[in-house]
Amino acid sequence: MIAMSEGPTVDDDLVRRLVAGQFPRWAGLPVRRWPSGGTVNAVYRLGDDLVVRLPLVRGGVEDVSAERHWLPRLAPHLPTSIPEVLGAGEPAEGYPWPWSVYRWLAGEPPEAGAPTEPARLAEDLAAFVAAMRGVTLPGAPTAHRGGPVATLDADTRAAIDALRGIPEEDVDHDAVTAVWEETLRAPGWDGPPVWLHADLMPGNLLVDGGRLVAVIDFGCAGTGDPACDLFPAWNLLPPDAREVFREALAVDDATWVRGRGRTLSQALIALPYYRRTNPAMARNARHVIRAVLADVRN
């Protein structure tokens, strides 16, 4: 997890000064902070059609250049809208890092466990994941979380131990440990690495009328184990739609087990870290833990 105390103070006035100084054509447009459950970037609406995104922590700075490079290259290959960089901001006004202006994408994040059109959303998500896997752009970076499952073992077990000291979270420690150990026993991915979004959290998905209309935040994108893009099966979709998602992607048993374990690992690590500081992240982590344990018991 990224420490939250590294970055500069960002407020409306700073954003106005940055925009006016570097993009005069947008000076004077209304600026307002946009509520977000994310922890790496501050997001501001700029007028009706634009959004400003600024890293809050040093760990998000490399994502700015990565998105500027890869978003326009990925967009033609994908079935849903993704962010479009319209302005490449640079450090100024005491703000130390690059930042970007994007076109505003309409839609709302879906509700975990209760999307309004779960089966159709599952099909849309599968189409997006399949399209990402089919990308063949050269020079791809390694996706965040895209490596072997075993690289997550120490952090996952440390998180389980941390949760033992938080009885009010009511986590079945033996059950999550068993799921994690099953994940470690699953055969690893032996095919070529595939393109991944690698952070398909509900907050990075936008829906309209129950259908997926956009996917945002490609800071973790790159190539790796295809199991890394199965997260929505447990962090978002109810059981019936989960099966629609799996069937549409023709996921084999080993990849499914790795995907479930990876999703659980992320939730276990997030819960003790965010439970006091980020209600949205903690709430989804609890949802994932419940969904995974219910899945393995059925």
Rank of each mutant, 00 (worst) to 15 (best):
I2L: 14
A3C: 06
S5M: 11
T9L: 05
T9R: 09
V10K: 03
D12L: 05
R16D: 04
G21F: 00
G21Y: 01
F23P: 00
P24A: 14
R25C: 07
G28K: 09
L29H: 09
L29C: 03
P30F: 07
R33T: 05
R33C: 02
W34G: 08
W34A: 15
P35D: 14
V40Y: 01
V40D: 08
R45E: 14
L46R: 04
D49F: 02
D49S: 14
V51Y: 08
V51E: 06
V52N: 02
V52D: 00
V52Q: 01
R53T: 01
V57D: 00
E62V: 12
E62Y: 04
D63G: 11
A66H: 15
E67R: 01
L71T: 09
P72Y: 05
R73F: 00
L74W: 02
H77W: 04
L78E: 10
P79Y: 00
I82D: 12
G87W: 13
G94C: 08
P96M: 01
R103E: 14
G113A: 13
A114H: 14
P118Y: 04
P118L: 01
A119L: 00
D124C: 11
A126I: 11
V129G: 09
A130D: 08
A131R: 03
A131T: 08
G134Y: 03
T136C: 03
P138W: 11
A140S: 10
A140Y: 05
V149A: 14
V149E: 08
V149Q: 10
T151S: 15
D153P: 01
A154Q: 15
A154L: 14
D155C: 00
A158K: 14
A158R: 15
A159K: 11
I160W: 12
L163N: 03
L163A: 04
G165R: 08
I166C: 01
E169M: 08
V171M: 12
V171T: 11
D172C: 09
D174N: 07
T177F: 03
E181N: 09
E182T: 02
T183R: 10
L184P: 07
R185P: 06
A186N: 06
D190L: 10
G191A: 09
P193T: 08
W195Y: 03
W195K: 03
W195D: 02
L200M: 09
G203Y: 02
N204W: 08
V207W: 01
G209N: 06
G209D: 06
G210F: 07
R211A: 06
L212K: 05
A221T: 15
G222C: 03
G222K: 00
D225Y: 13
A227T: 00
D229W: 07
P232N: 07
L237S: 14
P239W: 15
D240Y: 03
R242V: 04
E243I: 07
V244Q: 13
V251S: 02
D252Q: 04
V257F: 00
R260N: 05
G261H: 06
R262Y: 13
L264P: 00
L268N: 02
I269V: 15
Y273A: 12
Y273P: 01
Y274M: 10
R275N: 11
N278F: 05
N284I: 09
R286M: 06
R286D: 10
R286I: 05
H287M: 02
H287W: 06
A291Y: 00
A294P: 05
R297E: 15
